[in-house]
Amino acid sequence: MEPEYSSTVVEHFEHPRNGGHFEAGEGVIRGTAGSVAQGTMFVLSAQVAEERIEAVRFEAYGCPHCIAAGSWLSERLVGLSREQLRAWRWRDADQALQFPLEKRGRLLILEDAVRALSEAWTRLIP
């Protein structure tokens, strides 16, 4: 018995936005969390300029909810400032994608990836 998925999850799973990554370079930041061995892993990379996120790419190893969350998030992060990125929390994704209770831990891994991305931005010389 497979779990059921919300229409938003199905849409992002079938048509993921912004899959892939930016190669390291000027204005590129990267945040990673989780592992394949754990069953969930996210890699976020972003192109930043003028104190805003210009573009985001995601890679995900995980269940359909995780892939959908990576895709959904990649659209939401565009345009955020450093402060806004630092303030991002998992509940936004949960509300949009209706994660089952037993899978909410995977959203914490996504939040860790966002935090790692934010920290990478902090380290980036302006």
């Binding site: 890699v43 995601f58 995900a60 990576g70």
Partner: peptide, 10 residues
Amino acid sequence: RLRALAPTST
């Protein structure tokens, strides 16, 4: 498709 979305380090 799923492998293309997976982290390239795996």
